[in-house]
Design a protein around this nucleic acid. Structure first.
Lengths: 157, 157
DNA sequence: CTTTTTATTGTCTATTTATGCAGAACAAAG
DNA sequence: CTTTGTTCTGCATAAATAGACAATAAAAAG
């Protein structure tokens, strides 16, 4: 059993996975071969586990491997104020951006949508971010206060 | 073949998945049974796909189902040039749209969020598209170069 | 109502991923 | 050098997930 440089192999995997849409370990196997790092599906399974790389659903119904969102390689450098409160509200013209703790965005967006306020055209929620689109001609200050009244986390901001 | 309420079943799945650590479809199957929504592994496989719920790696080396990180964001229709390269950056006033290979958007968006740059108000990630909202008065050119420096795939663009 | 089309679901099976086990490489002691 | 323990790897196989197909139900069209 020839032993190869595992550290390098892991790097190669990261490189491949983050630069192309890999849909299976067999597919990755081929790429590893091309890259000059032949191995087996078994090894890739274990490497991917160690790298915390998982398959995520893409829109076309495809499943592709993707790097972990919280990589073990990049501790999040948080701002102090942001650390304190994970809630924030920013605006730019007819758009507002609300930051929430991870996972809370869609819930909050739902509450905002439920208002059915003529001031708000609509919302788009990510994991921890909401984009609020104001209605044309809507008063930004008015909208801001409406949002703050609706979203408890923003009260103090 | 009795037909049950699919909409409700999907809701139940979402509830279960987001409230407990489900490690396999068989396990989910049991929970669905308990919840009064018996079905088969096949159905769960399809439902999870439709809900875009995927398995992610947890720290303890376990694999757990998790809700998708993005909400109902509709990817922007792609232009011809954009299709050519899988990475692209477009802008329109205070908005920038980044296209990535499928499944990579949330990872990139995470990196951008982690910058905590005053230039960027926030990001919303779809599957292969990221919407970046610039801060009011932010210099678009400056933001563009910041983004290019942060996202390796955009280097050549 | 009858016919046609579309959607939903299960069974059976293929595909994909993970694991038990064993052998070899390496490292640390003795 | 020899022994002992650890890490890495592949093979064979188990476990988990997805897909083809068929059956039935619901909806739409006539």
């Amino acid at each position: 059993m020839q032993r190869q440089d595992k550290k390098t192999r892991l790097q190669v995997i990261r490189m491949i996975v983050s630069s192309q849409a890999i849909e299976s370990q067999e597919e990755l196997l081929v790429e590893m071969d091309k890259a000059g790092f032949p191995c087996t599906q078994t090894t890739l399974s274990r490497d991917l586990k160690q790298l915390r790389i998982s398959k995520v659903r893409s829109r076309g119904g495809r499943n592709v491997y993707a790097m972990p969102r919280e990589g073990q390689f990049q501790p999040v450098p948080t701002h102090e104020e942001i650390k304190k409160s994970r809630w924030s509200l920013g605006e730019n013209g007819s758009l507002m951006v609300i930051h929430t703790p991870p996972g809370h965005a869609s819930m909050v967006a739902y509450d905002l949508d439920a208002l059915r306020s003529p001031l708000l055209l609509g919302t788009i929620a990510g994991d921890d971010t909401i984009l609020v689109v104001l209605a044309p001609g809507a008063d930004a200050a008015e909208a801001r206060s409406l949002i703050k009244d609706t979203v408890p986390g923003l009260k103090s901001n």
